[in-house]
């Protein structure tokens, strides 16, 4: 059954409403305090903030890796807070592409095998998986490194492979956690150029960063501090 709220704005990818996340330590930590945020299809949003500001909690919440204490989170119009663990896992696998600071590539698997990994849990037909992975690699300009092992690639190349893997499952959202944190200026530029290209092609991007060089390229900047979100214009 479709939720009636699905109909409100079919362009919304993310809708956070009064989302709070409290860690039951002593004293309790309010990592997110009544956060509301709407991200539409094709948005390129940078989330900035110092460490300990609630950035990671926000990312984990958006990535369905963490459950908010209260409030509602709609991903692609689907209310996620009431879903069971395995339903959230499925949603995460099918709708969200993750890009990490440390790439998280499997060192013993070739570039194309690393990208193919993204389809292992989706239940998608195995046929042509390799071709789809090569296609994704070509889109990030890594078509010539298909059979390389990750340790023979530069940092920038590794991150592009990771982006190809994140794009593999045709996600609604690309969630990037400090994607340029381990890269030099030249490679950072290359990755940011790639983000621009993806945005132009209609991809929704959320990038968590503390680097101005990165956040300046985004079309929206949201800063977070002590669990409170402020949209910058």
């Amino acid at each position: 059954m479709r939720d009636i709220r699905d109909m409100r704005d079919t362009n919304e990818v993310i809708r956070l409403e009064n989302v709070s996340r409290v860690f039951a330590t002593d004293p309790p930590v309010y990592a997110l305090a009544k956060v509301s945020l709407v991200i539409r299809h094709g948005d390129y949003v940078a989330i900035v903030g110092p460490s300990g500001s609630g950035k990671s909690t926000l990312l984990n919440t958006l990535g369905l890796l963490d459950r908010p204490t209260s409030g509602s989170y709609l991903l692609d119009g689907i209310e996620t807070t009431a879903l069971k663990d395995k339903e959230r896992t499925w949603l995460r696998g099918s709708r969200i592409g993750f890009v990490y600071q440390s790439f998280h590539l499997l060192a013993q698997r070739t570039v194309v095998e690393n990208v193919m990994l993204a389809e292992v849990y989706g239940g998608r037909d195995r046929r042509h998986r390799r071709n789809r992975a090569i296609e994704a690699l070509e889109r990030v300009g890594m078509g010539h490194r298909v059979k390389f092992l990750p340790n023979r690639l530069s940092g920038g190349e590794r991150q592009r492979v990771a982006i190809a893997r994140a794009m593999m499952g045709t996600p609604s959202l690309l969630l990037c956690d400090e994607p340029t944190g381990n890269l030099d200026t030249r490679n950072t530029d290359a990755v940011l150029d790639l983000f621009d290209t993806l945005r132009d092609q209609g991809m929704t991007l959320v990038v968590i960063t503390h680097e101005d060089q990165v956040s300046e390229r985004a079309q929206r900047r949201v800063s977070i501090s002590d669990g409170i979100l402020t949209e910058e214009h």
């Binding site: 079919t10 689907i78 959230r88 239940g123």
Partner: peptide, 20 residues
């Protein structure tokens, strides 16, 4: 374009990851 198209909206209920 096709690989960037957004999936049709469906409810997340009862869906689970599968592995061949």
């Amino acid at each position: 374009r096709s690989s960037l198209r957004r999936l049709p909206r469906v409810s997340g209920r009862g869906r689970a990851s599968r592995m061949d």
